[in-house]
Design a binder for these strands. Structure first.
Ligand SMILES: [Mn+2]
Ligand SMILES: [Mn+2]
Ligand SMILES: [Zn+2]
Ligand SMILES: [Zn+2]
Lengths: 151, 151
DNA sequence: TTCCAAATTTAGAATGATTATAAAATAAGA
DNA sequence: TCTTATTTTATAATCATTCTAAATTTGGAA
C-alpha cells in the first residue's frame, strides 16, 4: 500500500523540492480512493492554496507518473484523465455513464508485472488495468429510459 | 479473433447502415496490429476517400466502442487516443517514448472478465489492459543521452 | 424510374483539457 | 543579506475532439 512517503520521497530522490503544494497533492492522491482528475485535485486544494495553479497540479502529476509512483488510467466516460496512486496490482472498473471508478481485487493481475517484464525487455513505469462498462445504478437508469421511449 | 464481420455486423445489428466509409474503418481496425488513433485511420483512408471527414472516423469509433467490439486504450506517450479491435483478453504494452503498442499474450488476463462481472454486477463493455514504460530501443537511447550530459 | 424522408457524411467552427511561456515568488546556501 | 536556482503562478496558446448545419447519399415507396 502506498503511503504519503512513497510519493514525497520519490520526488525528493528525483532532486525536487518538497513544496507545500506538492506535498498536498501527494496527500490527496494517497488519501483518495476516487481516482481523481487534475481538475478534481485543483478544486479540492483551492481553499487551502488560494493562488494554486492548474499548471502546478499537472506538472506534479506528470512527474509522479514518470517516476512510476502514480498510474494514469485515462478517460472514464468524461474526457478527463484519471490518476491512481495505488500502484499495487488491481483491477479498476469504470462506469462510462457516471464516470466513477472502483477497485476490484484480483489474484490474476498480481503476476502480470513480472510476466510482462520477462517477456518483453521493456522497463515498466506503470499499469493501466481499467475495465469499463455500466454500473448497476446506471444500467437501471438506461433500462428506465428505454422503457419510456417505447411507450 | 475478430474479423471484419464482427465489426460490420455489430453496426448493422445496432440499426446502422454499412457505408463504404464505415466498412473501410472496420477493415483497417481489424487488419492493423498497431492500435491506431483516429488521425492515423483518417490519414490512411484519405487517399481512398478524398472527402473523408475526421468526424466520420470519430463517430464510427465511438459507436464501435459503445457496442463493445473495439477497445479504447487511451494515450500512449503521445496525446492521441489509441484503439484496439482485438477484444480477446491480452496485455497491451506501450512505450511512452516512441508510442508504439505491442501485444503480450497472457494466461492471467483470460479470466478477468468473468471474475469482474461476478464480483461487481457491472455490465462490461470493454477492457483497457495497457502497461507502459520504455521499449528496449528507447532505453538505449535514454542511456546514451544521459552519458552525453555527464561528459 | 422518380420522389421522399431518414440517415449519413462533410466542412468548418467551437470547445475545453492540457501545455507552454514568462514574470513573480520562494527557498537554499554562501 | 545577496545571489541564484527552483518553483509557482497567471495567462496565452495548442490541438485533439466535438458540435453544427448544410450537402449528399441511401432505401423504400409510389
Ligand atoms: Mn484503483
Ligand atoms: Mn492489442
Ligand atoms: Zn454509473
Ligand atoms: Zn520506444
Amino acid at each position: 500500500m502506498s503511503t504519503i512517503t512513497t510519493l514525497t520521497s520519490a520526488l525528493q530522490q528525483a532532486g525536487m523540492r518538497l513544496t507545500p503544494q506538492r506535498t498536498s497533492i501527494c496527500e490527496l492522491l494517497v488519501d483518495s480512493d476516487e481516482h481523481p482528475t487534475a481538475a478534481m485535485i485543483y478544486e479540492t486544494l483551492k481553499p487551502r492554496f488560494a493562488s494554486l495553479s492548474l499548471a502546478t497540479v499537472y506538472n506534479t502529476l506528470d512527474t509522479l507518473v514518470s517516476l512510476g509512483v502514480v498510474n494514469v488510467l485515462g478517460h472514464a466516460g468524461d474526457d478527463k484523465v484519471h490518476y491512481d496512486a495505488d500502484t499495487e496490482p488491481h483491477v479498476n472498473l469504470a462506469c462510462l455513464s457516471c464516470s466513477k471508478i472502483v477497485d476490484i481485487p484480483s489474484e490474476h493481475v498480481t503476476h502480470l508485472d513480472a510476466e510482462i517484464t520477462a517477456a518483453s525487455g521493456y522497463k515498466l513505469l506503470g499499469a493501466r488495468v481499467l475495465y469499463y462498462g455500466l454500473c448497476p445504478a446506471c444500467q437501471k437508469k438506461q433500462a428506465r429510459q428505454a422503457t419510456m421511449k417505447r411507450n
